[in-house]
Amino acid sequence: MIIKEINNKIKIVANIHKLTNTLSMISLSKMNKYNKIIKIIEQLYLKTQYFLKYIFYNKNNYCVIIFTSNKGLCGSINNDTIKKSLNFLKINKNIDIITIGKKSYEYFNKKCFYIKKKILFENNISIDKLKYSNFTINLLNNYKNIFYFSAKIIKNEIKIVKTNLFLNYQINKIKKKNFNNLKFLNKYINYSLKYIYLQNFYCELKCRMITMKSASDNSKKIFKNMKIIKNKIRQFKVTQEMLEIINGFNL
């Protein structure tokens, strides 16, 4: 192998190492940022969920909302989410499908599933803008229960979980003046979106960080091995030239 070719390959591997290491560090910094936000959103979500059991609603239809990322390079998190949602859809027929994220939409659209609604959020969307449109809110209010499929950190491990948006039981309806049930449900649906979306995004960042860190470590090992090969070839060529010079003197 020519040394020039090895040098070109070493440069490529070095650039890959820099790129993957940078992506890993970016994911880690974003994780620290979103971890604090998730804790605040979680409190709002749980508080509104507590009051939900006092509200009576009479609906018939069901819906499943599948959260995936817009980008790849985050391990098997998207595939695992799609697999779990598919197992649920095989058992439960006649359920409307709503996709959040590019990967889930591409898969279900390719497999010719009827998608009731496709939702795509920007990757760097602010928390204030992270909410359903009025049309989507009205659509979701027509369902008896909504099932979220998303990734969640459980005991420091990433798990794919199914979350019931509406509780399966109700106590007595709140009899209080000036209490707007519809307005409360709208806020609760948006809080649930923020909480579950951010949790899923946090898991996506963690998977990407782990994947990029692994790729960075592997490229570093390849870089060192190629350096060793380069030095051996150079040493072999120097030894060969010295032997040729010695043989020339002997002649």
Rank of each mutant, 00 (worst) to 15 (best):
residue 1 M to F: 14
residue 2 I to H: 13
residue 4 K to R: 11
residue 5 E to A: 13
residue 6 I to Q: 00
residue 6 I to G: 00
residue 7 N to R: 01
residue 8 N to H: 13
residue 8 N to E: 13
residue 10 I to F: 06
residue 13 V to M: 00
residue 15 N to G: 01
residue 19 L to W: 08
residue 19 L to P: 06
residue 20 T to A: 06
residue 25 M to A: 04
residue 25 M to G: 01
residue 26 I to N: 03
residue 32 N to D: 09
residue 36 K to L: 04
residue 37 I to A: 02
residue 39 K to C: 10
residue 39 K to V: 12
residue 40 I to W: 13
residue 42 E to W: 09
residue 42 E to I: 12
residue 43 Q to M: 15
residue 47 K to C: 15
residue 47 K to F: 14
residue 47 K to M: 15
residue 49 Q to A: 09
residue 50 Y to P: 05
residue 50 Y to M: 05
residue 51 F to P: 08
residue 53 K to F: 11
residue 53 K to Y: 11
residue 56 F to W: 12
residue 57 Y to D: 12
residue 58 N to Y: 08
residue 62 Y to A: 06
residue 63 C to T: 07
residue 65 I to D: 03
residue 65 I to A: 00
residue 66 I to G: 02
residue 70 N to S: 05
residue 72 G to L: 11
residue 74 C to H: 10
residue 74 C to G: 01
residue 74 C to K: 09
residue 75 G to S: 03
residue 76 S to R: 07
residue 81 T to A: 12
residue 82 I to H: 01
residue 86 L to T: 07
residue 86 L to I: 02
residue 88 F to E: 00
residue 88 F to G: 02
residue 89 L to K: 06
residue 89 L to Y: 01
residue 89 L to D: 06
residue 89 L to A: 07
residue 90 K to A: 07
residue 92 N to C: 03
residue 96 D to M: 05
residue 96 D to T: 11
residue 103 K to L: 09
residue 104 S to L: 06
residue 106 E to P: 00
residue 109 N to E: 03
residue 109 N to P: 04
residue 112 C to Q: 14
residue 113 F to M: 02
residue 118 K to Y: 11
residue 119 I to T: 15
residue 120 L to Q: 13
residue 122 E to K: 15
residue 122 E to P: 15
residue 124 N to K: 09
residue 128 D to W: 14
residue 131 K to W: 10
residue 135 F to I: 15
residue 137 I to S: 11
residue 138 N to M: 06
residue 139 L to T: 04
residue 141 N to C: 14
residue 142 N to K: 15
residue 143 Y to Q: 06
residue 143 Y to K: 01
residue 144 K to N: 11
residue 145 N to R: 00
residue 148 Y to T: 08
residue 152 K to T: 10
residue 153 I to K: 03
residue 156 N to A: 04
residue 157 E to R: 01
residue 158 I to W: 03
residue 159 K to G: 00
residue 160 I to V: 07
residue 163 T to W: 08
residue 163 T to L: 02
residue 164 N to S: 12
residue 166 F to R: 04
residue 166 F to K: 03
residue 169 Y to E: 10
residue 171 I to G: 12
residue 171 I to M: 09
residue 173 K to M: 14
residue 178 N to S: 04
residue 187 K to H: 14
residue 190 N to H: 12
residue 193 L to F: 07
residue 194 K to D: 01
residue 195 Y to W: 14
residue 197 Y to S: 00
residue 200 N to F: 07
residue 200 N to C: 05
residue 201 F to M: 08
residue 203 C to I: 01
residue 205 L to F: 07
residue 206 K to R: 02
residue 207 C to W: 04
residue 209 M to D: 00
residue 209 M to Q: 03
residue 209 M to C: 03
residue 212 M to I: 00
residue 212 M to S: 08
residue 220 K to G: 06
residue 221 K to V: 12
residue 221 K to D: 14
residue 221 K to Y: 10
residue 223 F to K: 11
residue 224 K to A: 10
residue 225 N to S: 09
residue 225 N to Q: 09
residue 226 M to H: 00
residue 227 K to G: 14
residue 229 I to F: 08
residue 229 I to A: 05
residue 231 N to P: 05
residue 231 N to G: 01
residue 233 I to Q: 05
residue 234 R to F: 12
residue 236 F to V: 02
residue 239 T to A: 05
residue 240 Q to L: 13
residue 242 M to H: 06
residue 243 L to E: 00
residue 244 E to I: 05
residue 245 I to W: 01
residue 249 F to C: 09
residue 250 N to V: 14
